[in-house]
Design a protein around this nucleic acid. Structure first.
Lengths: 210, 210
DNA sequence: TATTCAAATGACTGACCAGTCAGTGCAATG
DNA sequence: CATTGCACTGACTGGTCAGTCATTTGAATA
């Protein structure tokens, strides 16, 4: 009731939510959305199923919260890192660096992101969708600045931004897909930067044009 | 029993299988794998549920058959079309042309392919996986020829092939994702070719290098 | 120590659905 | 006409699981 009481309550809520989301990511990652059960998540989090429903309204709710908390984190970290970079090339390198670091550090999250992308396409959860749009818009903004500064060719900004984000996703998907012939020491970050930057930058032998 | 009898039976089987797969694609596309029910597919195909199980062993079976019949078709058509193209640039253009035509012609199939990619990552259905590997390998072979002929930079062939295939997928995913700012008349085929070819070809100002 | 009440519990319910199988009807055969 | 075989049917079963709610727990307060 007092400020102290509120704080205590908030602390508990935050603690439980964190616990639940971490458990959810683990379970959703391991089994996929459909095969994951709420009981599994509860067991993993070390609470009863009913407790989950004190903090979230549905299985979907838990899923979206687990996914978008990480997405938001990644976006924020990207914005901070990019603010310290000068020039389009450095900014793109920075965006890739943050995304790759993030994905490498939390394989559970990437797996979930990749394998449940369809779930996102289908149910169109508002907050998560908005986050996706915001990320694409942010990158598109960087690209537009670069175009205005003559650092890259004129290309549709949003489409190009999404293509870049998708290439990162694709590189990680390669690891899961088990296609033979993918080299062991393959440096995805360098590969994506190289392919994208060469595809996008202005070559000296011909003018910028549309 | 006679040859005649066998032929009749085969004809019936082919007819039913075709009907079922078409219905399955429609239902899986509309609802996604999890939300689609076998009853829906049966109703759509105009047969009883039991009949489906005369031709396929499980819901998964139906799904994989529906997906890979189209994938195989696309791969075969690509191989034929590419055999008539000379030079790496023309071959890549041809690969893209076939894929885009295919995807544009059967939106159900793309949607299914994109939104249920996770299902593929997760359950690793052998025939479908092999088909995916074969498609990647085929494209990778073309790229390697191009590298040997000095038509493109030296890049990891399989990874590059998968990146190209993924860009096509990404362009179609953009349509479904509902991100604002994606231009109405956006030409995905030209965009992918342009970005990829520029990213990959040898620029005059610097040597090929690794 | 007694009281209070929010937090947590987990057994339970109702809906759902993949897969089954006993039965139907029809075309071919004797 | 009787018989056989087989494609087809759809009601049924067994199992699963999201979400609920009556009950318990334990920490804070009086």
């Amino acid at each position: 009731m007092t400020l102290q009481g509120k704080t205590r309550r908030q602390a508990l809520t935050e603690f439980r939510e964190g616990e639940i989301l971490e458990a959810a990511r683990k379970v959703f990652c391991e089994h996929g959305f459909a095969a994951a059960t709420v009981d599994m998540i509860a067991a993993e989090a070390g609470v009863a199923k009913g407790t989950l429903y004190l903090y979230y309204n549905s299985k979907d709710d838990i899923f979206w919260a687990a996914l978008s908390s990480r997405l938001r984190e990644m976006l924020e970290r990207t914005k901070v890192a990019v603010s310290g970079a000068v020039g389009l090339e450095a900014k793109i390198r920075t965006v890739l660096k943050v995304r790759f670091e993030f994905f490498r550090a939390d394989e559970q999250f990437v797996r979930m992101y990749i394998t449940e992308f369809g779930h996102l396409c289908r149910t169109k959860n508002r907050p998560t969708h908005d986050l996706y749009v915001e990320a694409a818009g942010f990158l598109a903004g960087l690209l537009e600045e670069g175009m205005a500064a003559g650092e890259m060719r004129r290309l549709p900004p949003v489409e190009t931004a999404m293509a870049l984000m998708d290439m990162v996703k694709a590189v990680f998907a390669m690891k899961f897909s088990g296609v033979p012939g993918v080299a062991e020491g393959f440096d995805g970050e360098q590969f994506v930067f190289d392919l994208f930057w060469n595809g996008v930058r202005i070559r000296k032998e011909e003018p910028a044009h549309a």
